[in-house]
Each structure stands twice: as C-alpha cells, then as structure tokens.
Design a protein around this nucleic acid. Sequence first.
RNA 1: GGCCAGUUGGUCAAGCGGCUAAGACGUCGCCCUCUCACGGCGAAAACAGGGGUUCGAUUCCCCUACUGGCUGCCA
Length: 491
Amino acid sequence: MKIRTRFAPSPTGKMHVGNLRTALYEFLIAKHEDGDFILRIEDTDQERYVEGAVDIIYRTMEKTGLLHDEGPDKDKGFGPYVQSERQKSGIYLKYAKELIEKGEAYYCFCDKERLAGLKSVVSEDEDGEAKEITKYDKHCLHLGKEEIAANLAAGKPYVIRQNMPMTGTTSFTDAIYGTITVENEELDDMILIKSDGFPTYNFANVVDDHLMGITHVVRGNEYLSSTPKYTRLYHAFGWEEPVYVHCPLITNEEHKKLAKRSGHSSFEDLLEQGFVTEAIVNFITLLGWSPAGNEEILSLGELIKEFDYHTISKSPAVFDMQKLRWMNSEYIKRMDDAAYYAAAMPYIDSAVRRDCDKKLIADLVKTRIETFCDIAGLVDFFEELPEYSVEMFTHKKMKTNSENSLEVLKELLPRFEALDDYSVAGVEGLLTGYIAEKGIKNGQGLWPVRTAVSGKQSTPGGAYEIMHILGKDESLRRIRLAVEKLEGSLA
RNA sequence: GGCCAGUUGGUCAAGCGGCUAAGACGUCGCCCUCUCACGGCGAAAACAGGGGUUCGAUUCCCCUACUGGCUGCCA
C-alpha cells in the first residue's frame, strides 16, 4: 500500500523547529517509499489563529523543499485541506453524532462553573502554584433522551464528549516506543465537538486522517499520552488505525522544551541569524535520528534515500547551537561561487562601504564564518582602522617587537610609495623581495605590515590581500600612522 | 499527586548477550602557516544506581533515582 503522511500544523505563528522536524520526518517517510505527503491546516482553534501564519507555513515548506502532493492550494484529492473549511459541511458533527448513536459519545451541557467545581488541588509545585486535576464525572452521560432533546431545542450550549469505559485497558503500538497499555479509568471523557461547533484537534485529527487515508501518523511524543484516546476513537468507528510514529522531543540546553525565548526556536529565527536553509534542514533531521553511515552532511535527496523511521531514537535531543553553527559552516564552504557571492555580498556591502575588491573579501571570509552574520565582525577593519596598541607589534613567535617593526615599516614606506601595482601579486612581490633582501623571516616582515594596515591581532587574509583591498592611499595612510605610533611610543 | 515515556562522554549518537564501547560537534595538543581560519594528525572524555537471568551483561527482567511529557471547550 502506498504510504501517505500528512503535516498538520496549526496556524498560530512562527514555524517552530519541532514542527519543522515533524514535517521533515513525515516528508521523508513518505518520499523514502515514493508515497504521498499531504498538507492539512488545523485551524479549529479560533482563539489562537494568527493572521499570516498560513503563509509562513507555505513559505517554509517551499523554502525547505518539503513540497506536498496534496494540500489546500491544490485542487485535487479529497479537499478541502483546511479544517475550518471542512467544518462548514458539518462533517465532524456528523461523525460525532454517529458515535453518540453507538453510545461512544454523548452530549454534555455542563457549564464552566460546574466543571470548575470538579477540580481538586492535588499538589503544589516549587513556585507554590497549585496543580489541579479534573476528570469529568460523566454527569451528562446519564441525561434522559427527553432532557437532551429539550436542552437542544432550547438552544442550550453543549459539547460532545467521548464516552470512555470505566474498566479494562487500551493498547496501541507505536513504531518507535512499542506497545503501550493504559487503564481505561485513566482516560478522561475528552471533548470532541466544542460549544462553538468546531471539533477539537483530537477529534478532527482522527476523522481527517481516516478520510484522507493517512497510513503513518507522525507527531511529537507529547501526544503519546493521548494516543489511547485516539485508539478508542478508531475502534469506535471501526476504522483501521494508522502506524504511529512518535518522535522524541527537542529541548534546549537546559533539557526543557524549546521555548520562544531561547531565540532559536523557530525556522525564521534561524534564518535571521544567518543560517542557510539546507543546513537547518540537515541539522534538524539529525535531532532524533542518525544515518547508518558516518557521513552527516546530507542533502534532502540523500536524506530521502537514507531515512528509515524505524531507527528514530526514543530519547529527547538537545538543540546544540554549536553543532548547527559547524554544520552551517560546512554548507557555506560547499556553496558554489554564484550562490555564495549572492548570499555573502549583502553582508559585505553593508559592512564595507569603501569601493574595493569585495569578491576577494568574500573569498577570504568564506572559510572563516559559521553564519553570514559573522562577516560584519571580521571585515570591519577594512572600513575603519580600529584603535590599537603598539603592543600588538610585539609577537614572540614572529620574533618582532616595536623596534624592528618600526625599522621594517620605515624601510618599506618609500617602497610602497613608489609602488603602483597594488594587486595582490604586486604587493606580494614587493614584500617577498624585501624579506629576501634583508634575510629575515616572513613573520618578521609581514607581521608589522599586517598589523599596521589592519590594527587587528587576526584578520581574514594576510598583508598582501589586505593592502590590495585597501588600495594604495589607505594602505600608505595606515602605515604612516603606525610609524608615528611606534615613534611616539619609543621616544 | 496520577499516568506514560526516557536515561551510552559536555552535546548529537552507533551498539541490539562476548567489542580495546564507533563516528560527529565542542574542548585540548601537534603540523601547516605572515595572523585568524581552512586542511592534516592525535588526545582527554560515557554505558544513572542496585538487584536478578546467564558461563558472560551497555544490551534481557525487576526495583530505585533522576529527567521529560500529559493531566485544557490548545494543539
């Protein structure tokens, strides 16, 4: 049978990385076996709906290459794929009523006050916050037919609840976690249809998954505890259950659920921080799953080939920013020229306003950045010579100090003044010639120059490249300044 | 509190009864080198604890501890 998976996000804001990974796994599971990947918008919660969130979902899917075979924007398949649209046809209510007839669900007219009265404080957490638990007492299950009819006729607000048995157990099998069994008395009579007429996620999800022929239900393991309820729903309808694939949670460094404040909880945050889409996709896939071989840098195509959901791990994974940064640097290094320049130039242009060889700057910086946002901090000295101390001319390993740096720079200054060819090769020729002539080490000649023209301990590129980028005038200005500095300190 | 799940180096993770317990990130060292990177080489670093089962447990079972999730007319 052809595999069909679905990504069923709620349009409530940014694309959380946990959601993105779920989408990724769903896509990978389907495509690995040439199956269908479906996009369904679960917007049954009117309260949480955020304008524009659906567009974020579309954009993210497109950018990451997780292209769906069926979805809201395509006019094929079962459609529509937006639950608020589907709801209009009364489809969910129809199925809920079917359950009522079977005795698997019932109308409930209890108001919030009565429900609140059912709550009991069971404990307090460390912050002194009371933890309450509620389990509905099945009060309305025992309403008479006439009473229900009268309430309905009177337009009294109602919900429809699932009728859980008080005895026995319910089991389901998850592809990752194995068979899980719970006591039915632990199961609350969950709400299927809300008083506003919308189905709850729990219900709409099951109905739609069935109607759309979803074979593999993939979701975060926060749903593991509620899955027995879904199992009961499938059984009540007499529907075949899908294969469940629950994925381990992604946590922050404190091993807590990735929260908004961590600053990297969403795809958009990551893009803003200079990460490339392919690296994000690659990295997120590896949170909870690892390939059979040792190669970790894998394109989406390679992931499709290698992904095997049976080997998804059970334990939660910490989102390691450090490793993402490394992986991003690998992707940057592997970018071809066109793509790389296109991505890097905007960052270089905004950091270096001087008219110069920016392509060279881009080349120099390529192996030195982990994200594009790192560029600014590396190239700032091209724009403006930073304040620096003469101590910088003293370097033990280079065998330099203020005295010989001053000597080198003073001897070099007239030669640079006479030089017209400030190409990299031109500058290099002059400097290597000088070094050979003096019989000194490369470092002894080059360290003073590089320091003088950059004012920094470390720079992308060396003296030749920097002088070429700065050009004759600016290079001379900086060298003269260094000479003054050194003379001042030695006087 | 109840229920469910998880627990291999700092992090991601191989392992599926017998191994010197892979690999990657990070860290440290060396080489390369005009700096920093890149690249190359190398090092330190782990089976939560206790009981079983077994000739033999990281691997199977039980208990404990810890961590996380759920316990909404949210998903």
